[in-house]
């Protein structure tokens, strides 16, 4: 389990995370939602120990270091691969550094997405690069797969296919933490939704509970963020009145 307690992170004077506490057990698919700058990416980078922070983040009771970091993989829209290296080259490299790398899964996903094995990744389209980034994260053999806006630039068919594949291949040990703005797209795919706003967790709910209560994920999010449904019509009305 990843256990986060009292996590605080500041950039200069601005607090990006204000005492976040969260538990992420194995076997869940967690959607991480929030507005731009809410702290989603910062939270992920703190989990990976890429950023200095105060508070505590543990993986199965131990601090995350080089010894256990292989249990966490990371797919980001910023991309973390080596542009001049081919997919086959990445596979060979990852196999040396991540002992549980799944060759079988890698080949299946490469085949599914019809990605070339021997071309440098830099020659891929943006969508293909995103797919490859996600493939690497899924094949690393990690128990925790962090995905930060992994499909920015992919078309909807591509994304839907991916969700289906993901549901089919994940084992019960694997946890996916998916940060995205595409709430409705992932609503049927995730089992838990964590809402973050201005560096604080403002909502944390299992989708099964929402179903029991007869709510949709979108309605829960709007309710949590106090979304005003009449905001657009009021704004348009004011604008039109102003013009007249």
């Amino acid at each position: 389990m990843i256990k986060i307690q009292g996590l605080r992170k500041s950039y200069g004077g601005k607090q990006a995370l204000k005492g976040v506490s969260l538990e992420l057990p194995r076997g869940e698919i967690v959607g991480l939602f929030g507005e731009n700058g809410a702290g989603k990416s910062t939270l992920m980078k703190c989990i990976l120990d890429f950023l200095p922070y105060t508070g505590s983040i543990t993986l199965d009771g131990e601090k995350i270091t080089r010894k256990n970091i292989a249990q966490i993989s990371f797919a980001t829209s910023e991309h973390s691969f080596f542009g001049n290296l081919s997919a086959a080259g990445h596979r060979d490299f990852y196999k040396e550094h991540f002992p549980d790398f799944s060759d079988k899964r890698f080949l299946s996903l490469m085949d599914f997405f019809e990605l070339p094995m021997n071309k440098p990744i830099k020659s891929f389209s943006t969508g293909q690069k995103n797919q490859f980034e996600v493939i690497l994260a899924l094949c690393q053999g990690a128990d925790y797969i962090l995905m930060d806006e992994p499909f920015a630039g992919n078309d909807i068919f591509n994304r839907e296919d991916f969700y289906k594949v993901l549901l089919g291949i994940l084992t019960e040990r694997e946890t996916v933490i998916l940060s995205t703005h595409l709430i409705e797209e992932v609503a049927d795919f995730i089992g838990r939704a964590v809402l973050i706003s201005h560096g604080e967790i403002v909502g944390d709910v299992y989708t099964s509970r929402l179903e029991d209560e007869g709510k949709t994920l979108m309605s829960y999010i709007k309710e949590t963020y106090h979304y005003r449904a009449d905001r657009v019509s009021r704004a348009l009305g004011e604008l039109n009145n102003g013009e007249v």
């Binding site: 990976l48 120990d49 890429f50 080089r66 970091i69 292989a70 966490i72 993989s73 990371f74 980001t76 910023e78 991309h79 973390s80 691969f81 080596f82 542009g83 550094h97 991540f98 830099k122």
Partner: peptide, 13 residues
Amino acid sequence: KSRSVYTFRRLRI
């Protein structure tokens, strides 16, 4: 063009 630092920092070395 990509943040290979994210990979380097997750290696076993």
